[in-house]
């Protein structure tokens, strides 16, 4: 059965984590999922920053939507790869596996896996057309993303705790 946009309803929100880029640098990732086009699409935003949040290593803005053929594709723009159209590959429930070629021929693979409630495992890699594919040798960007939530004030501190500290 084909996946639908509403299969990812539970992912709507903000997700963050600290991981590693494909080049091996530590990176701070922020990703958001929002419903778009009156619920006919899923807007997806991705940012990978240096840990000081000064340099954007990679940014992707995209929307997942249904083609007239029934297949889901992600239309996007990447600060590294430029315009993109990636196919949603068949996979298990709770997995979004996107794959395709950039306009310059780079092969791109992006996967989100729902590992646990409020936790996604993000994996991505890309290779130039002249690089041979080797699933083991190809470096990947990986990061565990946790759902972000607004800060709320906790219960007031017990005055006796601070007196004894």
């Amino acid at each position: 059965m084909n996946a639908t946009v509403s299969d990812y309803l539970g992912w709507v929100g903000v997700w963050t984590g600290i991981g590693e880029t494909q080049a091996g640098q530590p990176t701070l990732i922020r990703s958001t999922f929002e419903f778009a086009m009156d619920g006919n699409g899923l807007e997806m935003h991705f940012e990978a920053w240096d840990p000081d949040v000064n340099v954007l290593f990679h940014g992707v803005h995209s929307v997942l939507a249904r083609a007239p053929s029934g297949m889901l594709r992600a239309l996007g723009f990447s600060t590294i790869h430029g315009p993109l159209i990636l196919e949603l590959m068949p996979d298990d429930a709770g997995v979004m596996a996107l794959s395709g070629d950039s306009q310059t021929g780079n092969r791109i693979s992006v996967t989100f896996v729902e590992e646990a409630p409020d936790q996604l495992l993000f994996t991505a890699f890309w290779r130039t057309p002249d690089q041979p594919f080797s699933s083991e040798a190809t470096p990947r960007m990986t990061c565990t993303l946790k759902r972000g939530s607004p800060w709320k004030p906790g219960p007031p501190a017990n005055p006796r705790d601070s007196a004894s500290a």
Binding site: A36, M37, D38, R66, G76, P83
Partner: peptide
């Protein structure tokens, strides 16, 4: 409904990758 991105290719020409529900 539609969605798209306008960007420049290496030669400076506009590329418009787009989606239309129709």
């Amino acid at each position: 409904r539609g969605w798209g991105y306008l960007s420049l290719d290496a030669s400076g020409q506009v590329v418009n990758n787009m989606y239309s529900s129709e």
